[in-house]
Design a binder for these strands. Structure first.
Length: 351
DNA sequence: AAATGATACAACCGCCTCTTG
DNA sequence: TCAAGAGGCGGTTGTATCATT
């Protein structure tokens, strides 16, 4: 590295930030002659830079068609979607965002989007919800808040699934969080952790969120079990959580190994909603299996409408694509790009 | 007001692919 | 077919700026 720098110094090759004078020389030259051979350009333009540096400066900063400023919501969404299909192919992604450079997108991804996805509980590499216990539980307060919000909104959507209302009331972030909550419930629905270490981990991680989680399950379980009105018994979230008591009883099995509050203690402090426990239908529908079913499909009509909305938003010029066959509600965010059919759609779209 | 840490982004580096002779 | 050079790409680093203590 040092020898390289020395060699560069000997050759009078400058490195580091570009000065306005250098920028102007580069712009003037390319305007007059085009860039031609990048290797030859610096000498011809009177710059003490290597060709590579000139090319980078031009393509990433000086090019006249470069769009400056913050990324819009649409651009953000598009980058996430494209990344789910293309991975770190920044140049390929950049071709879909006019005026944005691969470098800019890459930086934006690394500094903003990656964190955003992580905060949403989505793995930025796989674009799937993160299911490891630590991460799920670490995000529990956020997830519960988001899920409560989304459940409230989604349950107000008419049976016919007013997609517009759905989109207005609940963004993809909320949906992703519901997906994650689903994961939590799955974790909690399985047998108690097989060893004391896992028990302790879960207990300490859950901590104060225990009450919140219980409350959420209790408040919404009747809704999860409701018929969505389309006759097939599916519910919007596609899973039917066990009775909260049953789920949490798994936790109580290792209550002594952790610092979890006792269920009884909690219910005593929250009596305002206990009627829901008795009146809701969930009591008659306690699943026999500990495993929650996978997220369920909504009707194909609903899906196509939803997909079209997503696709229209992403690419207003291409609203009809027969290869798009998303069928799951999770398709709204993250997973929808991992769905095989969806991926083929995006590949088609990109190609 | 100064120190420290976090964040954003421009720029560089090394590797890979493509082109050309 | 192969080797060399040029260009392109993705990962990483360095530095300026902003936020917090």
């Amino acid at each position: 590295m040092e020898s390289l720098q020395i060699s560069d110094e000997i050759n009078n090759i400058k490195k580091g930030p570009w000065t306005p004078e250098e920028d102007q020389k580069l712009i003037d030259y390319i305007r007059k002659h085009g860039h031609g051979s990048w290797r030859a350009l610096p000498k011809l333009a009177g710059l003490n830079r290597c060709g590579k540096s000139c090319r980078l400066r031009w393509t990433n900063y000086l090019r006249p068609d470069i769009k400056r400023g913050k990324f819009s919501e649409e651009e953000e969404q598009l980058i996430v979607n494209l990344h789910a299909v293309l991975g770190n192919k920044w140049s390929a992604i950049a071709t879909r965002l006019p005026g944005r450079t691969d470098n800019e997108i890459k930086n934006f991804w690394n500094t903003h989007l990656k964190k955003k996805l992580l905060q949403m509980g989505i793995d930025p590499v796989t674009h799937r919800p993160r299911t490891d216990l630590n991460n799920v539980l670490a995000n529990l307060p956020q997830l519960l808040a988001a899920a409560n919000f989304a459940v409230g909104n989604l349950m107000n959507v008419p049976n016919s699934w007013d997609i517009n209302a759905l989109k207005l009331q609940s963004d993809a972030t909320q949906l992703a969080k519901i997906q994650l909550l689903h994961n939590i419930i799955q974790i909690l629905s399985t047998s108690p952790p097989p060893n004391i270490e896992a028990s302790s981990l879960l207990g300490s991680s859950l901590g104060d969120n225990y009450n919140q989680l219980f409350e959420f399950l209790r408040m919404n379980s009747h809704q999860f079990h409701g018929n969505n009105g389309n006759g097939n018994g599916n519910v919007p979230f596609g899973f039917t959580p066990q009775e909260p008591n049953q789920i949490l009883s798994n936790l109580l099995n290792f209550d002594s190994a952790s610092q979890l509050p006792h269920l009884g203690d909690y219910t005593n402090t929250s009596t305002s909603n206990t009627s829901q426990l008795g009146s809701s239908s969930y009591a008659n529908n306690i699943p026999t299996s500990n495993q929650l079913p996978a997220l369920v499909s909504v009707s194909s009509a609903d899906c196509s409408a939803l997909n079209q909305q997503i696709e229209t938003k992403i690419n207003p010029n291409d609203i009809s694509n027969p290869s798009s066959t998303l069928t799951t509600f999770e398709a709204n965010w993250g997973d929808f790009m991992d769905d095989e059919a969806s991926q083929s759609y995006w590949r088609d779209f990109i190609e």
